[in-house]
Design a protein around this nucleic acid. Structure first.
Lengths: 209, 209, 209, 209
DNA sequence: GATGAATGAGCCTTCATTCAT
DNA sequence: CATGAATGAAGGCTCATTCAT
């Protein structure tokens, strides 16, 4: 599914990019703290260092901002991940390596991930569809890596098992963000990665026989 | 942490209980569909079959409703779970049995669980603290069961491992609700319970040596 | 064409009637002075002696007010006219008598008539259709009186001539309102009626041979 | 009353003339369709093929455009009329001839005439005065022609009668524009001119004895 | 002179909450 | 206790106007 086109009053594409980034960055803090609905456009504008009239040069509605937020979130996730995930590891190591990189990214876009969980319901219908399709794409991507690793280990699991394990991995990543209030007290990211890698490998073995 | 006291204009405690339940039940649908903020008090009143003035006889603000919602959610979770979780299974079976009961409850309060994820940020600070304490209590409760099972299996894991496995279990339950859009297409609840039970046992084994 | 239904939050029909009248009365002055667009809802509310939130209990949008304004205008025109136009005069006297009554009504709803001319373009499409249909009804009504009078005089004119004379009469009425700035300086209403009655009778005769 | 001076940033008078005409032409369509207030300066600029900053080089405010619109309307009316109205007809024929030319002009500036009726209230006070003075001038002009014709017919009417007949003629012209929705269905311009000429002559006769 | 991004006053509308009945 | 009309703070958005380039 292609990105939805959010019209802008401004022609210059570079400026649009730059300004929208400003807007997004300015949104994260208040979205995280008070949620989308309690965040005012005036507030976003102020945070972004622009007049609130300016926002509407780059966006048609407050909901557009939320959409752009999600879009950017998936962009970051994909871009960063693809740049870091290497092909040099095989089998379980491929999984360990992926988990490590993935959890690291989540740790970097921690706030955004939390917001994702609370605010997807605030998205208007067509936008929500886009986001779900992106999430699906991501599931497919993780699943492909996962399957490759299993093949390398000569492990054969049912599609259903693989699919669920994939969701488990993804959600364990998110968990680091949305349960941060509990987990960060006890674990460093490295420790968290270490344990969860083991649970994942353990899960695979448990499903194999 | 004790329940917060939500003042009411009405004295009769039974009536308060009854009316507040009406209000809560009336809230679930719109909260699920459009979220807390887009749901109006008028709508809740209408759904609850009372005048919208009446709501304010039993609640001091819209946020109170959300708080009562969370309170009731944890009450249900605890009450139902405690009534169903039996002590007759030992070891891994204790875990399997608990997971089964827990996931069943989640399946019954599916909507509420989803709402919990989207709307916790909508709670005013003091309320949020209560909710987090409730969540902590629940973690402790699950952990106690889990520990007992491990002891019965003579498995000794570090507190850190146990704690994380506990969170994993809890989140896997929530997942059934908040990832329902993907999971329900592929799994029945029974199937989901079956696979996840295995991944959990697998995780335990992986963390043991 | 039946009146369009403008929903109201309030149930009590009598109250709706009363409040809407307040709103309409409060609108005339500012609409006349500055036009619909420059008139703010706050201003209307203030003039009407109610809070501006109250307005939205009785109306769904500012445009609704304008619609109600037109509706009321035609209602008044029809009601007053029908109560005053008598059947006791025949022929030219019927016309003279009608013109007199009609122009008197216009004189009483002077401001409203002027507003009608400036603001019909401000009406949303479906409302505009209603207004045009009302205007058509009025044309038909005047034409019927006019035709009766001609028959009584045994004058036979083509439909086209009658139709145009009807429009002329109607517009001459409006003129008293929208050209008031010029006409009132020179003519009393009685004088205006007197001259225009003659021009109308003269027009009839000129079209007859 | 002399034309009001609308300041411009630009010196070159010819350019001002050209650009302002562009602006005016670009305004007619949207003014007609949606009215002055709903028409945005951006829209006008776009229609005029210039940047919307440019407008403010030739005009100081949006209202100025409306003023220029009225000014141009009267200019056109006068210019065209004076070029066409000939002195070769005498008496009633002078009237018939004038009516014909006048109604033809109205037919050509149909849209502008309609706009005049809806938007005069949108003009700021001092501008409105100018417009009324222009309208007065036009009344005087028509009255002079009319008087001449009456003199040629040796008909003597009171000033009051003449003045009102003049207004009638003028408004019958406008009517062709602002009641076009009803009249055009039934009459060609020629037919309309034909009937109205008769009603006017008839009116004169009726006022003579 | 022209451009078009930026500004921010101002407006409509919503909706939680109050309070007279 | 219940009702529902009234209140008005607050927020999203528009758009005329300015001004740096």
């Amino acid at each position: 599914m292609k990105k939805l086109h959010i019209p802008s009053m401004v022609k210059n594409n570079q400026k649009i990019q730059k300004r929208r980034n400003q807007i997004l960055e300015a949104s994260i803090q208040p979205f995280k703290q008070k949620g989308f609905h309690r965040t005012t456009t005036r507030e976003i504008a102020e945070n972004a260092g622009m007049s609130f009239g300016a926002i509407y040069e780059y966006v048609e509605s407050k909901e557009d901002i939320l959409y752009l937020f999600f879009e950017s979130l998936y962009d970051q996730l994909n871009t960063i991940l693809k740049s870091r995930v290497s092909d040099q590891f095989k089998g379980h190591d491929r999984i360990r390596s992926f988990v490590k990189e993935y959890f690291h990214v989540i740790n970097e876009i921690w706030d955004e991930t939390s917001i994702m969980y609370s605010e997807s319901r605030s998205l208007p219908k067509p936008y929500l569809e886009y986001v779900l399709s992106k999430e699906n794409d991501f599931v497919q991507y993780v699943m492909s890596i996962f399957s490759k690793a299993l093949k390398e280990e000569k492990i054969s699991l049912s599609e259903d098992d693989i699919y669920l394990l994939t969701h488990n991995i993804i959600v364990q990543g998110h968990m680091w963000a949305f349960r941060g209030w509990a987990l960060r007290k006890r674990y460093t990211l490295e420790k968290y990665i270490d344990i969860q890698s083991k649970t994942i490998i353990g899960s695979i073995l448990a499903l194999t026989e």
